[in-house]
Every structure is written in C-alpha cells, then in structure tokens.
C-alpha cells in the first residue's frame, strides 16, 4: 500500500500498533480540511508492527499530551518535503484535561469549572498524581 509523502505537516511515526486511532482522536483532526492518513499495522524493524499518522499542513500539535498516549512514538515536522525537526516523545511532566481523576472524593467530581491536572511522579512506573486530591494513577 502506498501513501504519498507530504510537503508540509507532521508525521507521527513508531506509534505502537493499535494506538493510532486513539492518538488521532486526541488530536481532534476529524474536522480537518487537509489530508490526514492513518496507517495501521505497518511493518516496523523496531516494534514488528506500528501505526503511522500523517497530517498535511498541520505543524502545531500538543506534543506533551501525545507523549502520554505513546512515549515511544516520534513526531517529524516536515517543511519543503524535508524533516525540519524530529521530536522523541516522553511522558509529560504535567497533563491537563486528558487524564480524569477517578477518586469519587476528589473535588473534580463536583466542581464544574476546574480542569483535571496530573503531575508525573514516577516515569518508570508511569504514575501520575492528581493536582487536587493526590490520588496516584498508573497509565
């Protein structure tokens, strides 16, 4: 199967197979006017199988939150048909509005205006701590 290379935009590569849809959903590009390609289960020397996302003309994405979904992925920013920047994702230090606190005693369960905020406590164990109630969650 062939998917054309892009002249300007981003390519999110090395996404763990099966997570592509989730990443795409987070990016919220379903309303995009430009070309978006999701390649699932592509052959990967590193992982065996991988997903790839290509988005034409978009270069401004929430890199920090992407790392939360799959910190083994890479983001290539393409300009003039060339890789201008290669970003290796990692777990973000702070995540806003992505992880929901499941502690029923947390104030986020009743206060409508506040954003769910989590802070990384242990990257190795992939653990985050709620800004408000300190509940620790593992991804």
């Amino acid at each position: 199967m062939e998917v054309n290379s892009i002249n300007k935009g981003i390519v999110i590569d090395h996404i763990r197979a099966g997570l592509g849809m989730k990443v795409l959903d987070h990016l919220g590009v379903d309303q995009a006017k430009d070309t978006v390609a999701l390649i699932m289960n592509a052959t990967s020397a590193k992982h065996g199988r991988k997903d790839i996302i290509k988005i034409e003309n978009l270069t401004d994405v929430d890199i920090a939150a992407l790392g939360l979904f799959d910190h083994s992925a890479t983001v290539n920013v393409i300009e003039d048909g060339k890789i201008k920047q290669k970003i290796h994702l990692s777990l973000p230090e702070t995540v806003r509005g992505v992880i929901k606190c499941k502690n029923p005693r947390c104030v986020t369960s009743v206060e409508p205006s506040i954003q769910h905020i989590f802070h990384l406590v242990d990257a190795g164990r992939e653990e985050y701590r709620c800004e408000y109630c300190d509940e620790i969650v593992r991804l």
């Binding site: 502690n103 947390c106 104030v107 369960s109 206060e111 506040i114 800004e131 408000y132 109630c133 300190d134």
Partner: peptide
Amino acid sequence: RHPKEGSAKV
C-alpha cells in the same frame, strides 16, 4: 472545611 479532597486548593 469541605468534604471533597482538594476543595481548599480550588
């Protein structure tokens, strides 16, 4: 004083 955890921070 409030029953929800994190209420004072809010």
